[in-house]
Amino acid sequence: MFSKGVMAGLAMAAGLALPTASMAESPTIKTIEERGTMLCSGHNGSYFGFVEVNDKNEWKGLDIDLCRAMTTALLGDPEKAQIVPLSWAQRFPALQSGDVDIIIKATGWTMGRDTELGLQFSIPYFFGGAQFMAHGDLGITEAKDLEGGTICVEAGTTIERIAANYLQSLGVEHTMVSYEKASELRAAYLANRCDSFVAWGPFLAVLRATELDNPDAHVILNDQLSNEPISAAMRQGDEEFVDFTNWMLAALLIAEEEGITSENVQEMAANPPNPKIARLLGTEPGMGERLGIRDTWAREMIAAVGNYGEIYHRNLGDDSPYKLERGLNNLWSHGGVLYAPQLD
């Protein structure tokens, strides 16, 4: 029989030895480092705002920027991100067969995917939900102003039910008109057959920016009717890689919280205003060792792609043609639901 002291000693040794040993063991990170490039999911065409191709034949978009951020953190160079074009149907098999290292492709975190498909998800990096868009000349900004109005919706979708419930709970009298096809729905809204149009928020923003003659004449209302968390998906069984992805996303959020941008990151790293920033940017050691990579990974990443806010504004927000309000996708301190785990 072992004495209690020996048992405790063994437990402590195991507890101390395991985390550091396992941190470097992520098979995915090992593969990426050996290969020298990171394989991310692209799209077979264009998915507005998230995955697009610019005039120089380069990928861009929110999902692409996150892939570049991750690549910079791992390999020190955003150019080492290799975007593999994938269709929607192909993305999960492609991940399982190793054609890509991670799926960052506007993919919702659902129970079925998490359990049956053998995936694991990162913390959500984007929240999309049903929203209303209304003609600007009505002068409204909130759903409660829709009293007595006509609302167009695609028939048979969950959004139809969500919108009806939401307006009922607000006590707003309204007429719901449903259309079988998205194109009919659009035409009806444009022909002023309805005051408002309910659909997935980013979809409304894309529609406003691309198909309406005068984007400024339409308002996306502030109300969020539903909420679908969008996460990065990874193969089951590589917890260290999930940890890395989560802390990569967390670092982007902490950077925004602390006012670190791609512009001022080098200054901040040289003279960190507080210990948290010093630790985040690798001025003080510790950040890298825990994840098994370089201490300066977050600094390099932010210098290359910016903080979460910069990425959002460049691709979906004010600096993009879509002008989609931050809404839920703001930091918790600004009325959104994005927050980072505690950096200790």
Binding site: S46, F48, Q90, A209
Partner: peptide, 24 residues
């Protein structure tokens, strides 16, 4: 082959009008 992620001429056409400035 667009379905299995190849960027053939139709997929690249889709990407060509897949940015807000060219979508119309």
């Amino acid at each position: 082959v667009i379905i299995i992620g190849f960027f053939d001429i139709l997929a690249s056409a889709n990407a060509a009008f897949g940015t807000p400035e060219w979508a119309p």
